[in-house]
């Protein structure tokens, strides 16, 4: 048994224990914190499985944004769960046993874990991604080149989903549906002086780091999605510590409403531009016909910026909607 297997199994054991504790826990604040722990351990597993970009995203999203959203909702609603009655447990256990058994049986047909000769590996597209990409665009991080160029249309679709989800949250909770109750003056975290000073000092570094992640995604782990989430978490931190009013002075709602569609429009506009230049949709070769690799790099940079813009503004305005709801109750 190698060290790799041992570490894998221990991390899975921690994950399993955390998941079981989450199912048993009726206090939802604690369950939320354990969910954050679950995401963090999953991030470590992703690093072990060579998915550094994914680990980065999972750490930023699972530990940062989704925990803050869950906590925000808990503060708006009730944080104690009712006891699960026995009549609900038995059918669920049966379904889970049946589905798990079926999956486990079917897994026998999967290629062995870590095998180098799986259908996915043997497909010619692997060669394109890992070797051809170095001539096509010369970007070391193949995840970035696949994300933004080879499967750019796919990513556009994902960005549309993020955009739609953001708009839906704004419609459900946003300023348009706000009810005018007197604002309840709550304890703000800015009363803690140490926290106020430290988060004020850290704020520029977080934003700088987000920019680094955005523009360094070609060479190392990172890219538009991670950068967007880190940008948003910077503003979330500022909003948590100094209150919604202060952060909205820095980043007014109207600016967000312009920026949310702007990223998506930039992405789509780039596609239209490549069509007008005589290529196919999102074919960045046409941007620089004399030097297609430079054209590809330019296109990837623009697309990553567009992704970062939309993700950051959607996440920030989702956070604003949830906290704004709390302030107006």
């Amino acid at each position: 048994m190698t060290a790799f297997v041992l570490v894998n199994i221990s991390l899975f054991a921690i994950l399993g224990a955390t998941a079981l504790a989450i199912t048993r826990m009726r206090a939802l604040y604690e369950a939320t914190m354990l969910t954050a722990l679950f995401s963090l351990v999953t991030g470590s597993l992703f690093v072990l499985l060579d998915a550094v970009d994914v680990a980065f995203t999972e750490a930023a999203v699972g530990v940062g944004i989704s925990t803050v959203l869950l906590l925000g909702v808990l503060s708006l609603t009730r944080s104690r769960e009712a006891v699960t009655p026995r009549r609900r447990r038995l059918p669920a256990a049966l379904v889970v046993l049946f589905a798990g058994g079926a999956l486990g049986y079917a897994a026998q047909d999967l290629p062995p874990f870590g095998s180098a000769t799986t259908p996915v590996r043997d497909h010619p597209v692997t060669e394109t991604y890992l070797v051809q990409s170095q001539q096509d665009m010369g970007i070391p991080n193949t995840v970035t080149s696949v994300l933004a160029s080879y499967r750019g249309l796919d990513t556009l679709g994902e960005l549309v989903v993020v955009f739609t989800a953001g708009v839906t949250v704004l419609l459900l909770l946003g300023p348009l549906t706000r009810r005018n109750h007197p604002v309840k003056k709550d304890l703000v975290l800015a009363d803690y002086r140490v926290l106020r000073v430290v988060s004020g000092v850290l704020m520029p570094f977080i934003l700088l780091f987000a920019l680094y992640v955005l523009f360094h995604g070609d060479y190392g782990a990172g890219g538009g999605f991670q950068a967007g989430v880190i940008f948003a978490s910077g503003f979330v931190l500022y909003g948590l510590v100094f209150g919604l009013d202060r952060v909205q002075q820095v980043l007014p709602q109207a600016v967000l409403w312009v920026l949310i569609p702007l990223g998506l429009l930039l992405f789509m506009g780039l596609g239209v531009a490549t069509v007008l230049l005589g290529g196919s949709f999102l074919d960045y070769d046409t941007l620089r016909p004399d030097d297609t690799a430079a054209g590809q790099r330019l296109g990837i940079l623009l697309v990553e910026t567009a992704i970062g813009l939309t993700v950051a503004t959607v996440m920030t305005s989702v956070f604003f909607s949830f906290t704004g709801r709390g302030a107006s109750r």
Partner: peptide, 27 residues
């Protein structure tokens, strides 16, 4: 293989966006 990484990377961000929709409905 980079392809699963690309798919899951985007799926994580889409996942938190849909979680936000679910939470908004809960509220």
């Amino acid at each position: 293989h980079p392809l699963p990484h690309v798919l899951i990377l985007t799926a994580i961000v889409v996942g938190v966006a849909t979680l936000a929709v679910g939470l908004a409905l809960v509220v």
